[in-house]
Amino acid sequence: MRTEQNLTRLDRVFARLDREPERPAHLDVPKMSRHRIALFGATLAFYLAIVWLVVITSWLVRLDWLVMFFRPYQQWSGIHWFVDYYVVLGQRGPTAVMVAAWLGWRSWRQHTLRPLLTLGASLLLLNLTVGAAKLGMGRLGPHYATTIGSNEMGLGGDIFPSGHTANAVVTWGILAYLASTPRARRWLSALSAVTSLGVGLATVYLGTHWLSDVVLGWAAGLLILLALPWCEPLIARAEVAIFDLRDRWRERRDGRIPAPVPAAPVALPVPFKTAATASTAQDETTAAREAAQPARETAAPARSPRAPVYLAPGPHTTRSERTPVTPVGSRRPPHSDRLPRGTAASAARPLAGG
């Protein structure tokens, strides 16, 4: 009887991802080039300039009030219904679901989690940077303004910069960032720019944002897209960690323990020997040793046993007066008339001269 394993939805997803062993060769990861760094610096300077113009209540704040008093939603009331639907393209929830569905399909087809991880990293950066700026500057919107002509900063609001505009720039711009070909990247960049521009103007039309909020929202979203190549190494490490965690979870679920990797080469095992084989080999070794021993004794020259040398205490003598010790005795011929220095005979030797 054959039993089939019931696969969960997560198992099916990873099984589909495993069908392709490698990523497609045409996928290229954007890098932080000099051109991109220059654009990032220019956009950051533009961002700070907009904030400064609003803080000092410059001509930009006066323009905000003029647009608010113009009331576009009353001047062009016929398109109000369309703008109400179109502004949804800048809301974080619906747009994140739509873009995540598309990028999830791409991950399915290309055997990589990079599209989804890149989307998650961009939304995280968006929440941190734009959210911190909103709470830090605390600007009130047009519907809650208190003093005509003021910048409405530091009053507890949360509309500067525009979250709808920044979210539209990031969410739709991520499609252009992850495009596979330069041509698709150009078309998607133009489409995301038009979409985010329309979302920003829609919020001004409805009176929920100042014009300067929208301009700063465009700059904030563009900064996130330009900074994404700095996050690519972290995204790659996260992808590897997720797949490793998946593999360990599968092994733990199936009860399989991976074989340990040897740290050093293992020596070959010694073949097993029985008792009879071991005794026969020992007898042959003993016979060969006994046969080789007489031949070794015949070939070795006879040597006289060396007498042990004992170091006894005595008076120090120079090297010329020492007698060399060899295995066969001293080679120096005996001299009957030579006596060691220091004896009584040295006193009877005649002295020269005089």
Score class of each variant (00 low, 15 high):
Glu297Leu: 15
Tyr177Val: 12
Val61Arg: 00
Arg16Ser: 01
Tyr144Pro: 00
Ala291Glu: 13
Arg16Ala: 02
Arg303Tyr: 01
Trp108Phe: 07
Gly217Arg: 01
Leu66Asp: 01
Gly342Pro: 08
Ala352Cys: 05
Ala190Gln: 05
Ala292Trp: 04
Ile224Met: 05
His35Trp: 08
Gly342Leu: 02
Leu124Asn: 04
Pro24Ile: 13
Pro182Met: 06
His26Cys: 01
His80Thr: 15
Thr274His: 06
Ser196Gly: 14
Thr208Ile: 11
Ala264Ser: 11
His335Thr: 06
Thr95Glu: 09
Gln110Gly: 06
Leu268Val: 12
His335Gln: 10
Ile174Phe: 00
Gly198Leu: 14
Asp18Cys: 00
Ala121Lys: 11
Ala121Val: 14
Lys31Gly: 12
Thr95Val: 12
Ala193Arg: 09
Ala276His: 13
Arg62Leu: 14
Ala352Ser: 14
Arg62Trp: 15
Ala202Trp: 08
Arg2Ile: 15
Gly157Arg: 00
Arg303Trp: 03
Arg256Gly: 00
Asn167Cys: 08
Ala227Pro: 09
Val29Gln: 03
Gln293His: 10
Arg237Asp: 05
Val130Met: 13
Ile148Asp: 09
Arg253Asn: 01
Arg250His: 11
Arg92Pro: 12
Phe14Glu: 01
Leu116Ser: 10
Gly136Glu: 10
Asp11Tyr: 00
Ala275Arg: 09
Phe82Val: 11
Trp187His: 15
Leu60Phe: 04
Ala220Lys: 03
Ala281Glu: 15
Ser346Asp: 13
Arg237His: 12
Leu135Asp: 04
Ile174Trp: 04
Glu290Ala: 08
